[in-house]
């Protein structure tokens, strides 16, 4: 079953067509990266999925139960809209407890769950501070924390790491990875390297449409390609691997995995040949970067 299905969704802001017949299907249980240039319609997609932006036409189904409806989806679908902040006058703890209680939790469960999500984003020591007293990064992390209150089945995070420092980005990446298998996570971001590490499914949008969707392995060819970077004569090194039908691209030798052969098996065959011929290896990796895959 799919966690999220959008069919022929249109949304216009005046003359600007933000979503132009968007068809999208995200399988259940994946960590999905939603990518695309500015104006591709990612944020609008989050809006129509979250119910706070009204689609002009088309159909939306979350967890197989129609468009977002708090009566059906509260506590099951969680959102982090872009550029949204919690009430600045309230302390972190009170804000999260309030949202947890609105999800249907009793006071005791709300307190316990608030502690849990604050731990997830490493902010327990700031629980008593007012939102306005936190730095931008901390406020963003509190907003991320609210999305993990309870046990949501579908979590949509729009630019969760925008404006965060590398350390905080790493912490959130760890959090997203820890959610694998627990829920369906949809993350929108411009930082493709970050999505490449966190996601196992990717959707690319352009001009309000989905132009590419698939497993991360498939898109980046992680399971079907090995790239070998050497120092010195690349052509000579490639000739040593002639049996594997290599292709030279810049300083890299690209090898396709034959059907049924895993990249690690191919590596085990290639590596002894290169070492025996004293080729200076700089790097061996599988597939290509998400950025390269999407820019092709």
């Amino acid at each position: 079953m799919s966690a999220l299905v959008l069919k022929s969704v249109h949304k216009a802001y005046g003359k600007i067509q933000a979503l132009n017949g968007l068809d999208l299907e995200i399988p259940k249980g994946v960590v999905c990266g939603l990518v695309g240039p500015n104006g591709a319609g990612k944020t609008t997609t989050f809006g129509v999925v979250g119910g706070y932006v009204r689609a002009d036409s088309g159909s939306i189904s979350l967890l197989g139960q129609g468009p977002f409806d708090p009566a059906i989806h509260r506590g099951r679908v969680a959102l982090l809209p872009q550029d949204c902040e919690l009430n600045p006058h309230m302390p972190v703890r009170e804000s999260l407890e309030f949202l947890a209680r609105l999800q249907g939790m009793d006071r005791k469960s709300a307190v316990a769950d608030t502690d849990r999500v604050l731990e997830l984003v490493d902010l327990r020591d700031r629980a008593q501070m007012k939102i306005r007293q936190l730095s931008h990064g901390m406020r963003r992390r509190v907003s991320v924390a609210q999305a993990f209150l309870g046990s949501p089945e579908l979590v949509l995070l729009d630019e969760p790491t925008a404006g965060l420092d590398p350390d905080q980005v790493m912490r959130l990446r760890t959090l997203f990875l820890s959610q694998k298998g627990k829920c369906t996570l949809v993350i929108s971001s411009h930082v493709l390297a970050e999505l490449e590490q966190s996601c196992d499914y990717v959707v690319r949008m352009e001009a309000g449409r989905c132009v590419q969707a698939g497993d991360m392995d498939q898109v980046t060819q992680r399971r079907s390609m090995v790239r070998v970077q050497v120092q010195g004569d690349v052509q000579a090194a490639a000739e040593l691997l002639a049996a594997f039908e290599p292709r030279v691209q810049g300083e890299e030798i690209i090898l396709r995995c034959p059907v049924g052969v895993a990249p690690e098996t191919l590596n085990a065959q290639v590596l002894p040949i290169l070492l025996a011929n004293e080729v200076k290896l700089l790097q061996i990796r599988t597939g290509e970067s998400l950025e390269a895959a999407l820019l092709k």
Partner: peptide
């Protein structure tokens, strides 16, 4: 955008 956190619940 604080309203959106509430309206999702």
């Amino acid at each position: 955008g604080a309203a959106r956190f509430v309206l999702s619940r």
